[in-house]
């Protein structure tokens, strides 16, 4: 795969990586949006949506509170959606391997956000005198630096991830020895367990939440059976 092939994905990863924290936080970086968009870029939006739904179930748990450290789902979902949508949709193991690639990317991208925050802090410290004296140029410059650096960060993470995983995913899928149905079942069981636990944790302080959750499960089960 040449650079030009992954350039649109890199640009998408850069823009959606930025949405996570710096601009505009409209949640276009949520997995269900980002992975679907990446799938659409590859020409297979339904496959991107499948990856997006899986990552969204995992992302339910992570609440982006202030200074807490969390995986960066925007760029990672673009990578996962693009890899899964590319051409391995129906091959055994494609889902599991693409998900693994997305999670590794999310971890690395989360780490890169911490580094960027430290870089911003050192930049702010270097500009401290000018900021204290009320230099609007320093304030605006620092803000633009952070925004640009975040755009570059998301793009760089997506580029490296695509460079590494584009050849690695098909290589692993080619050696896959587990039945496709068991592979898919394992992935779904893990993410559904994480999502259920996450909902339980997030809403435990809401009165009657557990009762409502169980009531919802009954309705959901009926809908599943009825369809």
């Amino acid at each position: 795969m040449i650079f030009l092939d992954i350039l649109p994905i890199v640009i998408l990863g850069a823009v959606l990586g930025m949405d996570v924290v710096t601009f505009p936080q409209a949640m276009i970086s949520r997995p269900i949006v980002a992975a679907t968009a990446a799938g659409a870029f590859i020409g297979n939006a339904p496959a991107g949506l499948v990856m997006g739904a899986i990552l969204e179930l995992l992302a339910l748990e992570m609440l982006p509170f202030g200074a807490s450290r969390y995986p960066e789902w925007g760029s990672a979902s673009v990578v996962g959606g693009a890899l899964y949508a590319a051409r391995w949709e129906d091959r055994p193991g494609a889902l599991a391997v693409s998900l693994l690639a997305a999670l590794v990317t999310a971890m690395v991208s989360g780490w890169s956000m911490v580094k960027l925050r430290r870089l911003n802090a050192s930049r702010a410290a270097a500009l401290r005198d000018r900021l204290d004296s009320g230099s609007a140029d320093a304030v605006i410059g620092l803000q633009l630096f952070g925004l640009t650096a975040d755009l570059f960060r998301g793009g760089a993470v997506t580029f490296v991830a695509m460079l590494v995983f584009t050849p690695l995913v098909p290589a692993l899928v080619a050696r896959w020895a587990t039945d496709e149905r068991y592979s898919r079942a394992a992935v779904v069981a893990v993410v559904a367990a994480v999502a259920s636990g996450a909902v339980w944790k997030i809403f435990h302080s809401v009165s009657n939440a557990r009762l409502l959750f169980v009531a919802g499960l009954v309705i959901g089960a009926i809908l599943v059976v009825a369809r």
Partner: peptide, 10 residues
């Protein structure tokens, strides 16, 4: 959200 979660996850 708790009710929706029960429906949506399955």
């Amino acid at each position: 959200a708790a009710l929706t979660a029960g429906i949506a996850i399955p």
